[in-house]
Nucleic acid binder design. Sequence first.
DNA 1: CTTTACGCCTGACGGC
DNA 2: TGCCGTCAGGCGTAAA
Length: 271
Amino acid sequence: MPELPEVETTRRGITPALQGRHFTGAVVRESRLRWPVPAELNERLAGQAVEAVNRRAKYLLIQLAEGGLILHLGMSGRLRVLPADSPLHKHDHVDLCLDDGQVLRLNDPRRFGAVLWQPGDALEHPLLAALGPEPLSAAFDGDWLHARARGLSLACKNFIMNQRVVVGVGNIYASEALYRAGIHPRRPAGRISAARYRRLATAIREVLEAAIARGGTTLRDYVGADGAPGYFKLALDVYERGGLPCPRCAAPIRRELIGQRASYYCGSCQR
DNA sequence: CTTTACGCCTGACGGC
DNA sequence: TGCCGTCAGGCGTAAA
């Protein structure tokens, strides 16, 4: 998916189109996403006012007068604001229809995304209840990581990708943050000092903020609400740069599978 | 409890 | 040209 910066960019992109509007309903062309799209979605949405558009972790939360929508983009989801009569493309699974003739259209080839209905407070939904702190909030810092990692032997890259530890960090930004912090992605999470975790927390925050500032990272699928790609790919130090020189020391960037996921790092800068 | 592997899907790409 | 294997930004679940 889109990791945190891409979801945040999407949130910012769709918010102006939603603010002050009502939904008139929904059109579900394919309900088999990660979980079935609720059959009653159209009835739930009809006539409801949009109260807020928030993000928690990689979930978009559209709060309505009564209840709300929880959206997830999975690996390949795109959410765009379009005129309702825009031509349909393959994998345009769901339209959320607004009262000004526009729709919020979800396109998701791999169908790992989700459209869920939550009657009450979205944050109480089982998928969201146990999530870790937001990396851009004050609740997240190196001391939290250090405390949470105590006794763990798993690779620190997998540790920071665990959404119960810290949310929003996916495969791209895990590699990038560890590179910035000079930490080897395979290093056991429980064998990193508090000082190094503080550096890592700072690196996570910086890399996410820098990516948001450039509209996210487009490798293949991702586009923002206006259809534009994200430009942080140009600023990636290691991700998908196997064999290319490390920006700091010029040693070739290595690519390895860690926990079944492609990982990139500099063997001499990261310990 | 922690850790690992596996599906869920489609599409793009490289090798033959 | 086609076929086949591999890989892709996530994450819940089962099993060890």
